[in-house]
Every structure is written in C-alpha cells, then in structure tokens.
Design a protein around this nucleic acid. Structure first.
Length: 689
DNA sequence: TACCCGGCTCACGAA
DNA sequence: GAGCCGGGTA
C-alpha cells in the first residue's frame, strides 16, 4: 500500500495518530475505504503490547456478527500472541447486552433464562394487544415502540407525549406490550441495549463492576448508534474520577440506519459530552480509483456537511463509470449478466471480484434467474436470514421453551408444530385459565381446576407435551461448562427424534420442499452442536443449551466459515457496507427505488432527511467499487403485474460524469446475435491496461 | 364448519 | 414470489 508518509505499523500519519492517541476520548472520522478497521485492530494491538492493557479489559463493539468475527481474526493475526485475541470482548452491541443481562438478570427482576423475542413474536404480541388484523397498523405500532425504546422513552412518557389518537393508541399498546414481555420473562432486541442502560443508571455497583471489567472501549460504525446505544457507551466509559477512555470510529456520510433509530446527532453530541475529544480524520482512500471517488464525492456533496472531509486517492483515474439505460427490468438483468460475463472474460477476473448491489431484496430475484441462465455462480448476502426460516424457528421454539417455560409464544409454536392434538379451542381455554391465574400457559397446564374446563382428550396431549419438555429441561440443565456427562448434542438429537420433525415435514409439504427444509434443520442442528462444543477448532468456549439458544436469537446468518466459493456477490446496499469489490454493478438506480419513495404525506423535513439518507446509500454503493463501476436503470419496470414508467435517479446526474461516460449507447448492447462476435472481438483485443 | 385453492395485490433496510 | 382474502367444495 503506497502512502506519502509511513510513520509506523505501515500506517499513514492520521491513522498512526489515531492508533497512538491515548490521552482520552478519540473520534476517528474515517471516510469510505480509509482503513478504519486497520486503525481499530492496530489500536487494540497497541493497547495490549505497548500500553499494558490486558486483553480481557478491552471491548470492541460492532453492529454485525460478521464484522465482529472478522475483527477478532484480524486482531489475532496482528498480535505476537494470537491466543490473547479470544480474551478480548469483540462483539455486537446486542451480544454484549445479552452477556450483561444474563449475568445481571436478577438485578432487573428477570430470570437468567429469559427468552429473546424476534420481531415475528413481537408482531403477534402486538396483534393480540391491538385486537386488529391490519398488518400495516401493527407494523406502524411496532416501529413506533421500537423507536421509543431506542430513544429511551418509557410508556408513561410516550402516553403523555402522544398528540394524535394513533400515537395515543400505540403508546397504550406499548405499555401493555412491556407488561406482556415481563410476564413472559422475555426481552426483545431493543431491550438488549435498553435494559443494561437502565441497570447501569440505577445501580452504581453493577456499573462500576463492568467499568472495571471493560476498561478501554472501541466502537465501530459509530454513526449508526442510536440514543440508547450511545447512552450505553457513555455509561461504560464515564465514572467519578475516571478518565473516559474510548475510541469511536465512524463516517457521517455512511449513516444509513436512521430508520432503526440511529442518529448522526450522536457524532455532534460526542464533542459536547466530551469537550477534550480528539478528532482525527482519515481522508486517504486506499480502495477506489479516482474516477469512482470523484463520482462519490460529487454525489455526497449534495448533502449538508457535518464535518468537512474530502477523500483522495493515489490510485489512477481508472475505468470510466458506465451508466446504462435499460428498456425494462428483464433486460437489465439479462444485460448485466451478459456484460458481467464478458467483462470477467476480458479482465481474466474471478466471479468473486464482482458484486451486484441493489436497494431492496425483491430486486434480486430477477437477477438470480438471469445469472442462472448465464451459468454464473452467485451467493446472496443480506436477504432472508437462515434463522428466519419457518423450520429453523420451529426448532428454536422448542429450545426457547426448554430454557424458559414462561415463553408463551414459544409454547404455542412448539405445541402446535408438529400437530399433536392440541388445537385452537384447547389453547383458548388454556389462555383463559392462564389469564385467571396470572401465570404462563405452561404452568396453567398443571393448575388445579383445569381438569374441569378441558376434556381428557384435550388435557392428555397437553400434559404429555409438558412432561416431555420438563424431561428435556432436566437433562439440558445438567449440561454445562463443567461437562458433567450429558452434552447438548445428545439432548438435541433425542429431541429431534422424539418430535419426529422429518416426518412432519414430509406430511405437510411436497417432497422437494420437505427435503430442502429437512436439510436446513440438519444444517442448523449440526451447527448448534458444533457451537456447543466450542466451534470447529474447539477454540471457543463450550456452551450449554441456554447460551446457545440466546446466541441463536442474535444471529443473522451462518458465519461464512466455509471457503468462499468463486461466485458473484449479490447484496443489498445496506448489507454491503464495510465490504469492497473490484467490480461493482449498481442496479435499479431509479427515482422511487433509489431514492426509495416513502410516505407521500410525511412531513417535509423528514422527506428531506430521507433523501439525504438515500443519497448516503448511493454513496455507500459507489464507494464499494475498487476498479470499475456500472450503474444501470430501467425505463420501464414490472410492478404488480403491469409495466410502469420509471425515471433515471437524480443521483446519477449528481455523479457529474463526463459526457462520454454518461450517454447510454443502446446500440452497443449485447444481444444473443452479436454476442459471439463481441466475445471474439474481446479475445483479439489486447488486454486492457 | 373447516379447509383448500386460485386470483389478486404488493414489495425498503436488519440485530 | 408470498401472503391474504374470497369463494367454492368435502
């Protein structure tokens, strides 16, 4: 890597300054591709090897499991003693939250076997509370509640602040929702951060304990933190007579998570809360060619600036950026597939050098078809998570129920899947009884008086199911780090055999589907067993079934342990952040898609704010590319059956490409007829410089 | 009454 | 392509 000055560690001057700065809080404004992960990992090595920090006293927080895993690996490679890396807390905000909650559950009146509800569970809870089937409305309430939680607004405040009747209704549901989760001994994703914040605020001793445990904090993607996460950071680093020690790394131009409560205000607030904050800017980009950077700078230049920052690169001008106007989405997919093929051939590149990036997951489907037709291997990232598949959630519901019998949503799912003679009517009676006794459904099965309300035929399968779960629970409890005989794998295997899930799948689905689903469950259970043993290399800690269950709730995808196949990457723009590819195709760059059209009747300032966030999304997309960038848009697009007219996105104009780059030349498009000829022509052409 | 099928509509992002 | 609803059927 070329750099004008190389003061040490192979870093440039500002990177070096960021790594060495140990006098107090530090904010690193790291432009796209400016080597921010390098700064974090080098700084951790510096803390351990030069500053005398013990690995277990250092915590690095990220937003995704993938980023955390990758960071840990990179740190291990840097350290003279790689083994030390596993003692560093490198985790997502949410995993750290689980860790704190599990240890401090009692302080919060929560059992340590609390369940973690996913958004589907929360959806059904809201559905029950709101007594409505209007999905849109439920979603809106869910979103409102999530934003309240992330903004540290409690139900009473929300009720007081409500202006419209809708808000008031949502706030009342919020209040019952919080109570419902408490009754289930469950927390949702937002609680994983919010509850530790409440705990640290109210309990000096606990806070002090964690402060002594995690003495230096590093925060990645700081621009994506929400109010609650920032509060957690603050509570962890500030104490009486203590110098706040942390490094936050972020880029305001890449803030793309406002919709889940993130606020770039946190960047400004940092300077207010920590007046001696040292701000260091990383402006040298090591990733992209100059043309790509110019386009990126031009686009983002249309946003108001929080911090003045301009990216530059020592790389050459590079390939011109190609903008392609397509007749429709069908043609777009086909052309991109063909062009990618030809481009790869011309450059002698690998498939894995390419990424196709898009705004929404549904845009991927048509490209999958086209890529398959062209026999181009691809892998998807983002999109529906492995853990969101129904068959996986079925199995997880059993695990959740074993860990926490108060978990009513898990109880309902497990007892009805596979069907075991418990139907709606039985569950309704059970629900009424549970309501009367103020206890969980599971407990209600054994409450006196229930015999009178249910027939023997109804009661028998209930009791049998609960006994079955109790047995598993008893066995699972014996499993632990101590490893006293029984292991999690055996319990899991017996459970799978007992519920005869494979049989159920073949009963309910056609053979092909069932086979796929069964394979998924096998992949899942094998992965679980592997994790329980401390991972493939046995490097991780052994985990019991409870820990596994709580971990699984936070997973978004199987960690890509396997060798990366040579395949084109397909990803949403959101999921592409932090990654880079030699060649990028940015597709569907149309008004309404990127920028995405939102509520037409939203207040004007939020519309402006939304466009700015969409622009940052475009910026993220452009800056993923190292050497070449293709941008495409469609004049027509199939939507709800019929074709609708589309306009080129304003962001394409904002790239301010030279005339030669911007004019789409349709006559140059590759058709099946001229395809062979163009390939031949490519073969004869000398390789591009 | 319960279930199944077909047509219709609709789609942002994720721990 | 999926989920929802309405209508038709066992």
């Amino acid at each position: 890597m070329s750099s004008s000055s190389s003061p040490g560690f192979g870093l440039n001057a500002p990177q070096y300054a960021a790594v060495k700065y140990m006098d107090g809080p530090c904010l690193v404004l790291a432009g796209a591709g400016s080597g921010k992960t390098r700064v974090i990992t080098q700084k951790i090595a510096h803390l351990i090897e030069d500053c005398g920090y013990e690995p277990r006293h250092i915590a690095a927080l990220t937003f995704t499991n993938k980023a955390a895993t990758e960071m840990q690996e990179r740190i291990a490679k840097l350290l003279k003693e790689p083994k030390q890396a596993k003692h560093i807390t490198v985790s997502t905000f949410h995993s750290l939250g689980v860790k704190i909650l599990r240890q401090e559950a009692r302080e919060l009146g929560l059992k340590d076997r609390f369940s973690i509800m996913d958004s589907d569970d929360c959806f059904s809870i809201v559905q029950d509370l709101a007594i409505t089937t209007d999905k849109q409305l439920i979603r809106r309430i869910q979103t409102a509640m999530s934003l309240w939680k992330n903004g540290l607004v409690d139900p009473e405040q929300a009720i007081k602040q409500a202006v419209t009747e809708d808000e008031a209704q949502a706030a009342r549901i919020y209040r019952s929702y919080v109570a419902t989760l408490a009754a289930y001994q469950a927390v949702d994703f937002d609680d994983l951060i919010r509850l530790p914040v409440e705990l640290f605020r109210s309990n000096e001793a606990v806070r002090d304990k964690w402060q002594r445990r995690l003495r230096y904090l590093l925060v990645d993607e700081y621009q994506d933190t929400n109010t609650c996460q920032y509060e957690l950071v603050k509570l962890m680093v500030t104490g009486i007579g203590k110098k706040p020690m942390f490094t936050a790394v972020g880029d305001d131009d890449q803030a793309i998570y406002a919709w889940r409560g993130a606020t770039i205000e946190n960047l400004k607030t940092l300077q207010v809360d920590f007046p001696d904050l040292k701000v260091i800017k990383l402006e040298q980009n090591y990733r992209s060619s100059t043309r790509i950077l110019q386009a990126a700078n031009a686009v983002i230049g249309n946003n108001p600036k929080l911090f003045e920052k301009s990216l530059w690169s020592e790389h050459g001008l590079g390939d011109p950026i190609k903008v392609m106007a397509m007749a429709d989405d069908e043609q777009e997919a086909e052309q991109v597939a063909i062009m990618l093929s030809a481009h790869r051939f011309e450059r002698r590149a690998k498939f894995s050098d390419y990424a196709i990036l898009y705004r929404g997951n549904h845009q991927a489907r048509i490209f999958e078809k086209a890529l398959r037709r062209e026999r181009i291997p691809y892998v998807m990232s983002g999109g529906q998570s492995f853990f969101d598949k129904a068959e996986i959630k079925d199995i997880i519901s059993y695990l959740r129920l074993i860990a926490n019998s108060d978990d009513d949503p898990a109880f309902i799912r497990a007892i009805t899947t596979p069907r075991r003679g418990v139907g709606q009517a039985t569950l309704e009676v059970l629900g009424t009884v549970a309501g009367q006794w103020q206890c969980s459904l599971f407990e209600a099965v054994f409450k006196g008086g229930i015999e009178a309300k249910l027939t023997d035929r109804q009661l028998y399968p209930l009791r049998e199911f609960c006994n079955f779960i109790n047995q598993l629970e008893a066995r699972a409890s014996r499993v632990g780090p101590a490893g006293s005989g029984e292991n999690a794998a055996a319990v899991l295997d017996d459970m799978m055999k007992e519920i005869n899930y494979e049989h159920y799948l073949y009963d309910c689905f056609d053979d092909r589907q069932a086979q796929g689903k069964w394979q998924n469950t096998l992949d899942f259970t094998n992965w679980l067993k592997d994790k329980g043993n401390g991972g493939k290399d046995g490097a991780g800690e052994e985990k019991n079934l409870l820990e596994l269950t709580q971990m699984v709730a936070l997973m978004s995808m199987l960690e890509g342990r396997d060798e990366e196949p040579d395949a084109v990457r397909m990803s949403t723009l959101h999921a592409s952040k932090g990654l880079e590819y030699p060649h990028v195709f940015l597709i569907g760059v149309e008004e309404g898609i990127l920028p995405h059209k939102g509520d037409p009747d939203a207040p004007i300032e939020t519309i402006a704010a939304r466009i700015e966030e969409e622009r940052r999304l475009m910026y993220v997309g452009i800056t993923r590319a190292q050497r070449s960038l293709h941008v495409s848009w469609c004049k027509k697009r199939k939507r709800a059956g019929d074709s609708v007219h589309c306009d080129m996105s304003r962001f394409i104009k904002e790239m301010r490409l030279d005339e030669g780059d911007a004019v789409p030349k349709e006559e140059e498009q590759i058709t099946p007829q001229n395809r062979l000829a163009s390939l031949k022509a490519l073969l004869q052409k000398p390789r591009a410089a």
